[in-house]
Structure formats: structure tokens, C-alpha cells
Amino acid sequence: MSTTSSTGRVALVTGGSGGIGQAVVERLVADGFSVAVHYAGNRAKAEELVERITSAGGSAISVGGDVADEDAMQAAFDEVEARFGGIDVVVNTAGIMILGPIATLDLADLDRMHRTNIRGTFVVSQQAARRIRAGGAIVNFSTTVTRTSFESYGAYVASKAAVEAMTLVLARELRGKDITVNAVAPGPTATPLFLDGKDEQTVQELSKAAPLERLGTPEDVAETVASLAGPARWVNGQVIFVNGGLA
């Protein structure tokens, strides 16, 4: 739990219906935030999460839309502001990962990743920069593979390196507004996005790669996000590697 009160604060979590996004939503709700759970294609899962939160006494709504569509995201931000009165924190967990060697990767897959991971992060960050209240935070998502350079991750890493770059620039562009902008770069984390397409041997090898000798959990990552969203006001313009010491 954060050491400062988050009562009355509002967060929008893109990709909030699954994996790390869901853990982030649940942690922020536990910290006292009202949370907008964003979904792109799985409305039912987002609404199920919202129902669980509200049934337990929390405050949440679901909002939909393609993160790379500026009109859809403007409408989503409008909806959050209309419901909760403003936005303090935006967490960009929405992303896709398609693996393959650079020499043979289908360029359509490259374009899909770049549209969601780069343009999507840019569009959401643009709205956040215009709307977040003073004392707020923007948290984008990169990957530890920007350092480890695993084979077959070339296109994905290219998209996430772009996220890191825009994050550091935006932190400086928001000088004087009391808004922090950081990126979280998880290592191997036990989510469907990470586990999909990997055999058991590969998963076991990756689970031993970090000095802590386990895969990360979504909750591990959510803990760092919660700090950046709340008490960590002197951390700004940084990429935080959350990977158990892998790199």
C-alpha cells in the first residue's frame, strides 16, 4: 500500500482487463483510487473486473476503444472526466507482442505492433499530457528486452525502445506542471502475453535467468506502478527495470 492517501484520485489504465493491467487496476483500487478499466476488444472481461471491484466497495468503470485512435481515446478520457471529475494517473499497459527473426518477420506484424505500442502510447500520452491534474503521473510500459536483446524480439523491442524515448522527452516537456512521466520495463513475467508460444523448457530457463530465480508476477510490476502513481514524486523521466536483477 502507498504511504500517502490516494482517496479522491483517479486513474485510467489502458489494457486494464488482463495480465499486468488487471494487477495494476486492483492495486490502485486497493490504494484508494477510482479506476477506469480500459479495454480494446474484451469488453466482457473489463466489465467483469469492474463488477468485482464495485461489489467489494471500490470505485471503477470500464471504457473502450483502440488506443491508436485519437478520437476513441479522446472520448475515453472525456468519459472518465465526466464520471470522476478529472484524471490524476494514466498507466499505459496496453500492448501486443509478436515474436520472430528480423529476417523473416511478416511486416504486417511489425506494423500491428508499432500501431499499438508506439502510436497507441503516443496518442494516450498526448491526451494525458493535456488533461492530467497537477500532482499526477504518466506510467508507460517498456520491456527488459531492450537490454537483454533476446533473439526473435527485434520488432517488439524496436517498438518499446520508442516508448522509452518518448517517455523521457515528455517528462521534460511537462516541466513546471508537477506531473511525473516514467516507464516501467518488466522482465519475464507470468502473464498470457509472455507465456504464449513458449514451451516448458524455455519458460523454466527464463525463470532461472534472474538472480531471484523465478518469473515475475503481475503483482510485482503493479507494486512499482503504484509507487510511481503515488508516493514516488522524485522519480521522473526514468525507465524502471522490474526484473529481479536480470539486467
Rank of each mutant, 00 (worst) to 15 (best):
S2M: 04
S5V: 12
S6L: 11
T7Y: 10
G8C: 09
G8W: 14
R9G: 10
V10Q: 07
A11G: 06
A11R: 01
V13Y: 01
G21N: 10
G21C: 04
V24T: 11
R27I: 00
R27Y: 04
L28H: 11
L28N: 11
V29F: 10
V29S: 03
D31M: 13
D31N: 14
D31T: 09
G32V: 13
G32D: 13
S34P: 15
S34H: 13
S34K: 07
S34E: 12
V35P: 05
A36F: 13
A36W: 10
G41E: 14
N42T: 11
A44K: 13
K45W: 00
E47F: 12
V50P: 08
V50N: 01
I53P: 13
A56K: 01
G58I: 06
G58F: 05
A60C: 10
D66T: 02
D69Q: 05
E70Q: 12
M73G: 04
D78H: 10
E81M: 10
G86I: 08
D88Q: 03
V89A: 08
V89I: 14
A94H: 07
I98R: 11
L99K: 14
I102P: 00
T104P: 00
D106S: 04
D106A: 11
A108H: 00
D109R: 05
D109L: 03
D109K: 07
D111M: 09
H114Y: 13
I118D: 01
G120H: 03
G120R: 04
T121V: 08
V124F: 03
Q126H: 14
Q126R: 15
Q127W: 12
Q127I: 04
A128S: 04
R130H: 08
I132M: 00
G135Q: 05
G135I: 05
G136A: 07
I138V: 13
I138K: 09
F141P: 01
S142F: 01
V145H: 07
T146C: 05
T146A: 04
E151G: 13
E151P: 06
S159H: 02
K160A: 10
K160S: 07
M166K: 08
T167R: 04
A171W: 13
R172Y: 09
E173P: 15
K177S: 13
I179S: 01
N182P: 00
A183P: 10
P186F: 03
A190H: 07
P192A: 08
L195E: 15
K198E: 00
D199L: 11
D199I: 06
V203K: 01
L206Y: 14
A210V: 04
P211F: 14
L212S: 05
R214A: 07
R214E: 08
L215S: 07
P218T: 02
E219Q: 14
D220F: 04
D220A: 09
S227T: 09
L228F: 02
A229R: 02
G230Q: 07
R233H: 03
V235I: 15
N243M: 08
N243Q: 14
A247S: 05
